[in-house]
């Protein structure tokens, strides 16, 4: 358990010392969301309908951007190899890195989301639903994305490749997340959607770290 906390602490410290890796995806998120109204025109009617989809797609892309660099620096300076070789269970290290990664990407975007929801004139029920959906959906996306990041370690053009590998896997989260927001905006109950998102998260927590760990071993094995 110590190793888990130590990894979280270490990664968070690294992120604080090199904030560009965190801040850039968030800025990207901000810009992408602000571009949509400019492309569509300023009438409030359409905004309401597309708000959920726009925010979700922006979150998805920003998560991908931040995932891309998740293992990169540790891979390049050899720290990752040491982690694999050390006696500590790799799965806990991976889990720690994932939690740290989510704290600085998914959680921050969840906290930022009410702001954007306001920009899209979403009702207060909708704002709450967007935040809840992101809270449950972003960890799933970080977990799935880490598999792609681990598989493409050390490859050129890894970023585009991660997008191709991982985006199709995000579809269930996207569908459930937007449907949940739509239900909330429409005034109906969205507990069911939340339970489904939660179930998806639990399944992914159970399986994705194992896949990520195995992928790291594969990528480092040459």
């Amino acid at each position: 358990m110590n190793i888990l906390l130590a990894t979280i602490r270490r990664d968070l410290l690294q992120h604080v010392r090199r904030p560009a890796d965190i801040v850039n995806p968030l800025v990207f998120f901000l810009i992408v969301i602000s571009l949509f109204p400019l492309g569509i025109g300023p009438s409030a009617g359409t905004f309401n309908e597309i708000a959920a989809g726009v925010i979700w797609v922006a979150v998805l892309l920003a998560t991908l951007l931040s995932i891309d660099v998740m293992f990169k620096s540790d891979y390049e300076d050899g720290a990752l190899e040491q982690m694999v070789l050390s006696k500590q269970p790799l799965i806990l290290v991976v889990l720690g890195k994932l939690i740290a990664q989510w704290l600085v990407s998914g959680l921050l975007m969840t906290l930022m989301s009410p702001l954007f929801a306001l920009m899209f004139f979403v009702s207060s029920d909708g704002i709450l639903a967007i935040a809840m959906a992101l809270l449950l959906g972003t960890p799933t996306m970080v977990l799935l994305g880490s598999i792609g990041a681990a598989l493409t370690l050390g490859l050129k053009n890894g970023g585009v490749l991660i997008a191709i590998l991982v985006l199709p896997l995000y579809i269930p989260v996207l569908i459930l997340g937007t449907a949940m927001v739509d239900a909330a905006v429409g005034g109906s109950s969205y507990t069911g959607h939340m339970l489904w998102l939660g179930a998806l998260l639990l399944v992914t927590i159970g399986l994705a770290p194992i896949a990520t760990q195995a992928s790291i071993r594969i990528s480092l094995s040459q």
Partner: peptide, 10 residues
């Protein structure tokens, strides 16, 4: 060398 295993994993 790891191409096969990485693809299989994916």
């Amino acid at each position: 060398a790891s191409a096969g295993r990485a693809t299989a994993m994916l």
